[in-house]
Amino acid sequence: MTEEITMFTQVSNSLLQLHPFSTVELGLIKERLKLHRLKKGELLLREGQVCNGLYYLDHGSLTQKRNGDGEAVVTGLFTPGDWLMDNRSFVSRRPSNTSITAFEESQVFELDIDAIHELIGISQLFFRLGTLFENRFDGVEEAGSLSSIDEKYLLLMHSRPKVLQTFPLKLIASYLQITPETLSRVRSRIK
Protein backbone atom coordinates (compact mmCIF):
# COMPACT_ATOMS: atom_id res chain seq x y z
CA MET A 1 0.00 0.00 0.00
CA THR A 2 2.86 2.41 0.81
CA GLU A 3 4.38 1.68 -2.62
CA GLU A 4 1.04 2.51 -4.28
CA ILE A 5 0.76 5.81 -2.37
CA THR A 6 4.33 6.75 -3.34
CA MET A 7 3.64 5.93 -6.99
CA PHE A 8 0.47 8.00 -7.06
CA THR A 9 2.32 10.91 -5.43
CA GLN A 10 4.45 11.16 -8.58
CA VAL A 11 1.35 11.14 -10.81
CA SER A 12 -0.28 13.75 -8.56
CA ASN A 13 2.77 16.01 -8.70
CA SER A 14 2.76 15.78 -12.47
CA LEU A 15 -0.95 16.61 -12.63
CA LEU A 16 -0.47 19.54 -10.24
CA GLN A 17 2.06 21.02 -12.68
CA LEU A 18 -0.78 21.12 -15.19
CA HIS A 19 -3.48 22.54 -12.93
CA PRO A 20 -4.05 23.08 -9.20
CA PHE A 21 -6.40 20.10 -8.83
CA SER A 22 -7.94 19.75 -5.37
CA THR A 23 -7.34 16.70 -3.18
CA VAL A 24 -10.85 15.50 -4.04
CA GLU A 25 -10.22 15.89 -7.79
CA LEU A 26 -6.91 14.03 -7.53
CA GLY A 27 -8.73 11.29 -5.62
CA LEU A 28 -11.27 10.97 -8.44
CA ILE A 29 -8.42 10.51 -10.91
CA LYS A 30 -6.61 8.03 -8.65
CA GLU A 31 -9.73 5.85 -8.35
CA ARG A 32 -9.76 5.45 -12.13
CA LEU A 33 -6.08 4.75 -12.79
CA LYS A 34 -5.04 1.27 -13.90
CA LEU A 35 -1.52 0.00 -13.29
CA HIS A 36 0.33 -1.93 -16.02
CA ARG A 37 3.63 -3.72 -15.40
CA LEU A 38 5.47 -4.38 -18.66
CA LYS A 39 8.37 -6.70 -19.32
CA LYS A 40 11.15 -5.60 -21.64
CA GLY A 41 9.87 -5.83 -25.21
CA GLU A 42 6.20 -6.02 -24.19
CA LEU A 43 3.77 -3.84 -26.14
CA LEU A 44 1.66 -1.20 -24.44
CA LEU A 45 0.07 -0.26 -27.79
CA ARG A 46 0.22 -2.37 -30.94
CA GLU A 47 0.14 -0.78 -34.38
CA GLY A 48 -3.42 -1.23 -35.70
CA GLN A 49 -5.06 -0.95 -32.26
CA VAL A 50 -7.02 2.11 -31.21
CA CYS A 51 -5.27 4.02 -28.43
CA ASN A 52 -7.74 4.01 -25.55
CA GLY A 53 -5.81 5.76 -22.82
CA LEU A 54 -3.49 8.41 -21.50
CA TYR A 55 -0.42 6.85 -19.90
CA TYR A 56 1.94 8.05 -17.20
CA LEU A 57 5.33 6.31 -17.08
CA ASP A 58 6.14 5.67 -13.44
CA HIS A 59 9.41 3.83 -13.98
CA GLY A 60 11.30 2.19 -16.82
CA SER A 61 11.40 3.47 -20.38
CA LEU A 62 9.29 3.14 -23.53
CA THR A 63 9.76 3.70 -27.23
CA GLN A 64 7.14 4.72 -29.77
CA LYS A 65 7.78 3.71 -33.38
CA ARG A 66 6.05 3.80 -36.72
CA ASN A 67 6.97 1.73 -39.73
CA GLY A 68 8.19 3.76 -42.66
CA ASP A 69 9.76 2.52 -45.89
CA GLY A 70 10.71 -0.82 -44.37
CA GLU A 71 12.43 0.66 -41.33
CA ALA A 72 10.89 1.59 -37.98
CA VAL A 73 11.12 5.31 -37.23
CA VAL A 74 11.28 6.37 -33.58
CA THR A 75 8.60 8.98 -32.87
CA GLY A 76 8.85 8.97 -29.09
CA LEU A 77 11.32 8.13 -26.33
CA PHE A 78 9.85 8.16 -22.84
CA THR A 79 11.41 8.14 -19.37
CA PRO A 80 9.87 8.26 -15.88
CA GLY A 81 7.53 11.20 -15.37
CA ASP A 82 6.44 11.38 -19.02
CA TRP A 83 2.84 11.29 -20.18
CA LEU A 84 2.24 9.56 -23.49
CA MET A 85 -0.34 8.32 -25.95
CA ASP A 86 -0.94 8.07 -29.66
CA ASN A 87 -2.79 11.37 -29.87
CA ARG A 88 -4.01 10.90 -33.45
CA SER A 89 -5.50 7.48 -32.70
CA PHE A 90 -6.95 8.54 -29.34
CA VAL A 91 -8.73 11.61 -30.73
CA SER A 92 -9.90 10.13 -34.06
CA ARG A 93 -10.73 6.68 -32.57
CA ARG A 94 -8.88 5.15 -35.55
CA PRO A 95 -6.23 2.43 -35.48
CA SER A 96 -2.80 3.60 -34.44
CA ASN A 97 0.02 3.76 -36.96
CA THR A 98 2.56 3.47 -34.14
CA SER A 99 3.47 0.93 -31.50
CA ILE A 100 4.59 1.67 -27.94
CA THR A 101 7.00 -0.88 -26.46
CA ALA A 102 8.80 -1.29 -23.14
CA PHE A 103 12.50 -0.65 -23.74
CA GLU A 104 13.11 -2.13 -20.29
CA GLU A 105 10.92 -3.42 -17.49
CA SER A 106 8.44 -0.60 -16.93
CA GLN A 107 5.43 0.45 -14.92
CA VAL A 108 2.70 2.61 -16.42
CA PHE A 109 -0.51 4.14 -15.09
CA GLU A 110 -3.40 4.33 -17.56
CA LEU A 111 -6.38 6.64 -17.50
CA ASP A 112 -8.62 5.08 -20.12
CA ILE A 113 -11.13 6.87 -22.32
CA ASP A 114 -14.14 5.64 -20.33
CA ALA A 115 -12.59 6.99 -17.11
CA ILE A 116 -11.87 10.33 -18.81
CA HIS A 117 -15.49 10.61 -20.00
CA GLU A 118 -16.65 9.74 -16.49
CA LEU A 119 -14.46 12.47 -15.02
CA ILE A 120 -15.67 15.04 -17.56
CA GLY A 121 -19.25 14.05 -16.61
CA ILE A 122 -18.42 14.90 -13.00
CA SER A 123 -16.71 18.21 -13.80
CA GLN A 124 -15.79 20.09 -16.97
CA LEU A 125 -12.51 20.89 -15.20
CA PHE A 126 -11.23 17.51 -16.35
CA PHE A 127 -11.13 18.75 -19.94
CA ARG A 128 -7.77 20.17 -18.78
CA LEU A 129 -6.30 16.66 -18.91
CA GLY A 130 -6.03 17.13 -22.68
CA THR A 131 -3.58 20.00 -22.28
CA LEU A 132 -1.06 17.52 -20.91
CA PHE A 133 -0.37 16.62 -24.50
CA GLU A 134 -0.44 20.10 -25.95
CA ASN A 135 2.47 21.00 -23.67
CA ARG A 136 4.36 17.71 -23.98
CA PHE A 137 7.76 17.86 -25.68
CA ASP A 138 7.68 16.08 -28.99
CA GLY A 139 11.24 15.94 -30.26
CA VAL A 140 10.27 15.12 -33.82
CA GLU A 141 7.89 18.08 -34.21
CA GLU A 142 9.77 20.61 -32.10
CA ALA A 143 13.22 19.62 -33.28
CA GLY A 144 11.99 19.54 -36.88
CA SER A 145 11.35 23.28 -36.72
CA LEU A 146 14.97 24.00 -35.78
CA SER A 147 17.46 24.87 -38.48
CA SER A 148 20.55 22.99 -37.32
CA ILE A 149 21.22 19.50 -36.08
CA ASP A 150 23.21 20.99 -33.19
CA GLU A 151 20.11 22.92 -32.11
CA LYS A 152 18.04 19.71 -32.19
CA TYR A 153 20.53 17.92 -29.99
CA LEU A 154 20.91 20.86 -27.59
CA LEU A 155 17.14 21.10 -27.21
CA LEU A 156 16.97 17.43 -26.29
CA MET A 157 19.99 17.73 -23.99
CA HIS A 158 18.46 20.62 -22.03
CA SER A 159 14.79 19.63 -22.02
CA ARG A 160 15.03 15.83 -21.70
CA PRO A 161 18.48 14.76 -20.43
CA LYS A 162 17.13 11.40 -19.17
CA VAL A 163 16.50 10.40 -22.79
CA LEU A 164 20.21 10.81 -23.57
CA GLN A 165 21.15 8.78 -20.49
CA THR A 166 18.67 5.96 -21.14
CA PHE A 167 18.57 5.16 -24.85
CA PRO A 168 21.27 4.04 -27.30
CA LEU A 169 22.64 6.33 -29.98
CA LYS A 170 20.73 4.60 -32.80
CA LEU A 171 17.31 5.24 -31.20
CA ILE A 172 18.14 8.85 -30.31
CA ALA A 173 19.34 9.48 -33.88
CA SER A 174 16.12 8.04 -35.33
CA TYR A 175 14.09 10.17 -32.92
CA LEU A 176 15.94 13.31 -34.06
CA GLN A 177 15.65 12.18 -37.71
CA ILE A 178 19.40 12.06 -38.30
CA THR A 179 21.90 9.23 -38.81
CA PRO A 180 23.85 7.74 -35.89
CA GLU A 181 27.08 8.95 -37.53
CA THR A 182 25.78 12.52 -37.69
CA LEU A 183 24.67 12.30 -34.07
CA SER A 184 28.16 11.10 -33.05
CA ARG A 185 29.73 14.11 -34.78
CA VAL A 186 27.25 16.50 -33.12
CA ARG A 187 27.94 15.02 -29.69
CA SER A 188 31.69 15.38 -30.23
CA ARG A 189 31.31 19.04 -31.27
CA ILE A 190 29.05 19.90 -28.34
CA LYS A 191 31.19 18.20 -25.66
Rank of each mutant, 00 (worst) to 15 (best):
P161D: 11
V24A: 09
Q64C: 03
L154P: 08
K170R: 10
K152D: 01
L45T: 00
T131K: 08
Q177M: 12
F109P: 11
Y56M: 05
V186S: 09
N135P: 00
L44H: 09
F21H: 12
P180D: 03
E31A: 02
F126E: 14
I113M: 12
G144F: 01
Q107K: 13
T9K: 05
L183W: 02
R93N: 15
T79P: 01
S96W: 03
Y55W: 12
G27I: 10
F133G: 05
D150L: 09
E47M: 12
Q165W: 06
H59N: 06
R93I: 02
Q10D: 02
N97F: 05
S22F: 09
K191T: 13
L33M: 15
L183I: 06
E31Q: 02
L156S: 02
S159K: 15
D86A: 05
K40M: 15
K30M: 07
T79W: 08
K162M: 15
A72W: 04
Q124C: 04
F90W: 05
G130A: 05
S188P: 01
S12K: 14
D112E: 06
L132K: 14
F137H: 13
G76V: 09
R66C: 08
I190E: 09
T2D: 07
R187H: 07
F109C: 11
E104I: 08
P95E: 02
E181V: 15
E42G: 12
V91M: 09
L44D: 04
R93A: 12
E104W: 00
Q107I: 04
T6F: 10
I178L: 03
L33I: 14
G68E: 11
T63C: 06
R187P: 02
A143H: 01
E25M: 08
E151A: 05
L44W: 00
V50P: 07
Y175E: 07
F127M: 10
D58M: 10
I29C: 02
V24Q: 13
S96A: 12
Y153A: 12
K152P: 02
G139Y: 03
N13R: 14
T2N: 03
L154Y: 00
T166P: 09
L84A: 14
F127Y: 14
D150N: 15
G68H: 06
R185D: 01
F8A: 13
P95V: 01
S12E: 12
L111R: 06
S89G: 05
K152Q: 14
G27P: 06
